[in-house]
Design a protein around this nucleic acid. Sequence first.
DNA 1: GACTCATATGACATTAATGACATATATATG
DNA 2: CATATATATGTCATTAATGTCATATGAGTC
Lengths: 202, 202
Amino acid sequence: MSLQHAILVALTDGEKSGYDIAKQFDDSTGFFWRARHSQIYRELGKLKERGWASSQEIEQSGKPNRIVFSITAEGRKGLVEWSQKPSQVQELKDDFLVQLYALEHVDIEALRANILARRERHRDHLKQYQAKYDALEGSTNLTDIGRQLALEVALIYEREWAEWSERALARLSPEMLGPEALKLEQQAGATNVVPIARGEAD
Amino acid sequence: MSLQHAILVALTDGEKSGYDIAKQFDDSTGFFWRARHSQIYRELGKLKERGWASSQEIEQSGKPNRIVFSITAEGRKGLVEWSQKPSQVQELKDDFLVQLYALEHVDIEALRANILARRERHRDHLKQYQAKYDALEGSTNLTDIGRQLALEVALIYEREWAEWSERALARLSPEMLGPEALKLEQQAGATNVVPIARGEAD
DNA sequence: GACTCATATGACATTAATGACATATATATG
DNA sequence: CATATATATGTCATTAATGTCATATGAGTC
């Protein structure tokens, strides 16, 4: 349901085509919501049916004609009403945390590699958000206050994940885990990694 | 795809019925993954087909028979392989952040109420996670290290959201926003809230 | 005695989202 | 000259997940 609203928000700063919106979503400007172009076109169609957006075809040679969408008065009303009903709190739901939770049953070296990759990813994201955030520094108009607050969430999210990754890598290092873990593995009944596959089959 | 693995993880500490798993997921023990029972039963069926779980029917009077599932050797292998391919990084995707990003176009008082409710929610969650975390204190076996690390993520997540909420409430308070915001609203062309609905219709 | 709750399983309709396929051309790179 | 990339729109199959309905009963509450 929310993609429609995210698209409307994208339209608040001027008319855009589906292609424009998709690009904006992909080029990391779509910080807090994303979608593939196939879904965007579908939702744009629905927005138009609903009267929340209007469209205008712009002739082009060669490429297919651009169809640019604008938000309507109804659409703006839709945004306000949307903001008036409480949004769903994002619960943690993450493969990776499930894997950690079941550390005894997974490949720890693979997990570490994964954490390393994630750390890099989070650092990259952090830089991007920081640049956006810096650009708003000192601004006190409504829009910018909202964007600052939203970007703060994003900054904290990325920074904390990056820092946690650092700590996790240390705690899961063979040196750190090694002797202790081995001892305890035997004691616990040696469930770690693949001790079950007695047959070595497959 | 991951629900299957989350279910398998739930089965690593003993055989369970679909009902048990659903309860575990709902009772907040399903910290990092959740699902409705309808989906759980479906996925249990698939796990069985795949040979990753086996089931056993337990006769009961009155209620439908319990069907308890156990993880198989193949299932354990599945878990290891699952952990070996990099998991998807969870990107921020949140209605609420989109609303903040479009602060000029939404109902700020409603947003504040929303933030307040979220703060309470995050505080509750924080307590739950903290209790779980405290119970693991000092433990150095593999499983517990994994759980500590996973719970740390959860703790940080909830704590940071709660603290951010506090700051956001302050920055979005009428006193803080009032005069400044009003000034800038006029200057910006007064796009805030519902200034569009000239007709007062609907 | 009526009502709700916990136990227990499952089918089915619908929604949200991804990913693959399809089409068409101008421009830049090797 | 061939190939890739950017522009631009869309359909369609499939997957993942929610939510609703259906069924059956024992135990506790008002």
